[in-house]
Design a binder for these strands. Structure first.
Lengths: 336, 336
DNA sequence: CTGAAAGCGCTTACAG
DNA sequence: CTGAAAGCGCTTACAG
């Protein structure tokens, strides 16, 4: 653990000045090929590693991006974060990531820590919650930041927002169920006051309304466990329901389990549709019809947008909505 | 995006020297309460944020820990990484995380990047693969590093290894199946040459051998898709098999889906046991009997170990094995 | 094409 | 209890 060699050591060994070493580090064309080779050789000999921290002090570009996620254990967010991180890595950026577990206090804390660490930008899928001041801290620090998947700060001019087109997805799914003959369609899961729930539901409501059909909303947490319970509740309290659109895939997958457990069949008389299209939807039985958000591509898109902002100063649109599509599988009656 | 205030600005405003500001930043008892309050007030007025990067340059402790994971999309690793990251955050450390997607070249690249960023320590769940030089780079940089969950570098004196006791888990699970009356038990999934597979299998093999029973190994990728396929293969080619121990839960969950799809019942005549106890095991139908690795606690333990190493110089044991336990659910015949 | 010098924002002895 | 000064490892004009 002795001191790591610095550009001075390299310069000494290569017989040049430290400025020259710095220039070859930056691939400056100002350095002769021969000199460059000498410097590279000296670096290899010494086992030199670039100290990005020191460089950051001068240039204030850390090459570090902060990624703050409300629920990293949920596969939808896992896939988003992973795709985003890998896209950043490909462009030479490292990601500091933190899970906030839907806790706005923890969120404020990790955002503060990331700012101290000098991240060049922040991407946050925010927790709902009282402590909406997290973005104020970002504003004070003057760091480019995007809110993704959920919007909690109305200042989209300052903190651009990007998300899949949830409303369209809800509409697509409901139209599909209607076209398949369903008439009593329930919307299961999601919490009433929240924007994402409202958006996903609004497409559902519009489709029903245009047919003069009555909606049925069973609010609940976005978890497998809630979906499983919902299977029982539906059979007991709402036996007339012939189709359900779930707030997300996790709920739908839980619902599938619960339905199997009580021996009810899914597909013809009782259709189930999820939302997100996490990987598991294609593997479960019955395979789950769902709204594909293509979250991996979405994550890569966000990476691109943020880096363009950072590197070329192109401020993102205040609000970006990416298209969704319906993936029809057996849970809504398609033949396998 | 104007210049952020520095300790000099704070000092000016508070009417003290910048050393004093630095001392209050570090909670030094050498500063009078009154002075401290003035400095704090000045910071608040100015919206001062601590520049950890600058501090790092002097002290060489970045408060950044690198987390390199072979498959972040796999819920087992997601849970590990998340628990670890959150434990680090609680102790004031931020985590730079990267998924390597089982690609040893990518792994070498991200490890290099993290070293440049000056991480204080590295925790890696390594990809298998040809490029075993990743740890050499860590060695040259002189950074404390642990290998977790998988061991790829034999120098555990240098890179301590920690993992759940896979062998005991395999044995526990097999004994349970034998005690439940199973006689033809297959081991499904995992790749033959790999240490984790060998360990998980060795407990299985030992239990069978002691009864004079024949093993059956169906190697395959650790994915739901493989598990699903395995359901068909088992019925077609090995109808006599009355129980299966899966390499991991993902395979077991896929197997459950596949078994349901072909209309075969799981529980009495055909028992299924997983490995890891990811969250989903308790929610699926039938609920999955599995070997609990308690990966969240494991992750927290790794955080503790690494920070002790970093902060107190306590070098971890070369090899740590954490205990596992069997969780019996309906997939192996327990009544719900 | 290369060298000398200042500076990024902190911390750390060292005086006082 | 507080101030002046050096230094962490780079980058960046500026000379030459």
């Amino acid at each position: 653990m002795e001191r790591r060699p610095t550009i001075i050591d390299v310069a000494l060994r290569a017989g040049v000045s430290k400025s020259t070493v710095s220039l070859v580090l930056q691939h400056s064309p100002a350095v002769r090929e021969e000199t460059r080779a000498q410097v590279r050789a000296a670096m290899a000999d010494l086992g030199y590693v670039y100290n990005r921290t020191a460089a950051t002090m001068r240039t204030a570009n850390a090459g570090l991006i902060g990624l703050v996620i409300n629920d990293l254990r949920n596969p939808f967010f896992t896939e988003f974060a992973t795709a985003l991180q890998m896209a950043l890595a490909k462009r030479g950026y490292a990601a500091v990531v933190a899970n906030t577990d839907e806790d706005s206090r923890l969120q404020a804390q990790v955002i503060g820590a990331m700012i101290e660490h000098g991240v060049s930008a922040l991407i946050v899928s925010p927790a709902y919650g009282v402590d909406a001041t997290a973005f104020d801290a970002i504003e004070r620090a003057g760091i480019p930041a995007m809110q993704v998947l959920r919007k909690v700060d109305a200042r989209t001019g300052l903190f651009p927002f990007a998300a899949p087109d949830y409303r369209a997805g809800g509409h697509l799914a409901t139209e599909h169920l209607l076209a398949s003959g369903a008439r009593r369609i329930a919307f299961v899961g999601g919490l009433a006051g929240r924007e994402v729930t409202q958006e996903r539901m609004s497409g559902y409501l519009a489709a029903l309304q245009s047919r003069g059909l009555k909606p049925l909303f069973l609010p609940g947490r976005a978890s497998r466990a809630f979906g499983r319970d919902a299977a029982l509740v539906l059979r007991r309290d709402h036996p007339e329901v012939d189709a359900v659109l779930c707030f997300n895939d996790l709920i739908a997958l839980g619902l599938l389990s619960g339905t199997a457990e009580i021996g009810r069949e899914v597909g013809k008389a009782f259709k189930v549709v999820g939302f997100d299209d996490i990987e598991e939807c294609a593997q479960c039985y019955p395979a789950l019809t769902t709204v594909r958000c293509d979250i991996a591509s979405f994550g890569e898109g966000v990476a691109r947008t943020v880096l363009e902002w950072l590197e070329e100063g192109v401020m993102p649109q205040p609000e970006t909505r990416t298209p969704v599509e319906l993936v029809i599988r057996t849970s809504s009656g398609a033949v396998a």
